[in-house]
């Protein structure tokens, strides 16, 4: 409970990093998201919960414009990053994704070495001018992802040879390496065992000190453990958004209460 109070305090002083206003998403003619308004706070972990197909992943993919790659998807409404519209014609989605990184549900390291996996982002963005600089980025990223001790002796081994949990931390390291301001995580632990999950959760908590983290999860316990803010989605609507402690202990909407008590979902 002590933790909760502390994170509450954090939240009250945090500034808004991303703001979504009236976001609607259509896949062809079906509407997947209806009028979502959310403020993602800086250096805060925000959890999106809700039953399958409720639109939480869809919304997550709006935040770094990954939905652009889905031909049938159409996004309406305004999403801003530090007050700048990410759909502005001047914004390049490719550049945006370096700033708003993403970690996927299934660990998806490139079939390359561990080093190349982490170095890929900085390389394509031309962040480094020397090999030493790149080495340093790789090392700090792996350290931040709590993978350095396990991987430092086998940097040239293929990333696909790691265990599932290590692979997911490698993917996190890869996302961190581009130095993002927001990290989106789409059910990052759903393919992991409880031990690997615990490691990733611990990691998320540490990452919070550097940038805001948005995590989609099916596990309400996980949401309660790692997040300070929680948003509950249901049937394409954002039903409730508030401090995690409040959403889980004293939900204002009856649908939220039914979901977290296991009656719907």
């Amino acid at each position: 409970m002590n933790d909760m109070t502390k994170s509450d305090l954090d939240v009250s002083t945090a500034k808004i990093k991303m703001r979504a206003e009236g976001v609607q998403v259509y896949y062809g003619t079906t509407q997947a998201l209806k009028d979502v308004n959310v403020n993602i706070l800086d250096k805060v972990v925000t959890a999106f919960i809700g039953p399958s197909g409720c639109g939480k992943s869809t919304f997550l993919r709006c935040l770094n414009r990954m939905n652009d790659t889905v031909a049938s998807a159409r996004v309406e409404g305004k999403i801003t990053l530090d007050g700048q519209d990410i759909h502005d014609p001047k914004v390049d989605a490719v550049q945006l994704r370096a700033v708003v990184g993403m970690v996927f549900q299934k660990p998806n390291p490139f079939p390359k070495s561990i080093y190349d996996n982490v170095a890929y982002g900085p390389r394509i963005h031309g962040r480094t001018s020397s090999k030493a600089e790149l080495d340093e980025i790789v090392e700090t990223s792996l350290r931040k992802a709590a993978l350095w001790n396990e991987a430092k002796d086998r940097l040239s081994a293929p990333g696909t040879g790691l265990s599932g949990g290590q692979q997911q931390r490698l993917c996190i390291a890869r996302a961190i390496a581009t130095n993002p301001q927001v990290l989106l995580m789409d059910e990052p632990c759903s393919a992991l065992d409880p031990i690997a999950t615990a490691q990733v959760e611990e990691l998320i908590d540490e990452l919070r000190s550097q940038f805001s983290v948005v995590i989609v999860t099916h596990s309400m316990q996980q949401a309660a453990r790692v997040s300070q803010k929680t948003a509950f989605f249901h049937l394409g609507n954002l039903v409730e958004y508030g401090d995690t402690s409040q959403v889980f202990t004293n939900p204002s909407d009856p649908r939220t209460e039914s979901y977290i008590s296991g009656r719907i979902g």
Binding site: Q95, V99, G101, F104, P111, C171
Partner: peptide, 23 residues
């Protein structure tokens, strides 16, 4: 080629062309 590889590359900010030619 699994779509997850494309997602991974796009997710770290590779352009479409880089995704195709690198991965």
């Amino acid at each position: 080629v699994p779509p997850s590889i494309r997602d991974a590359a796009l997710g770290v900010g590779a352009s479409k062309m880089q995704t195709v030619f690198h991965h």
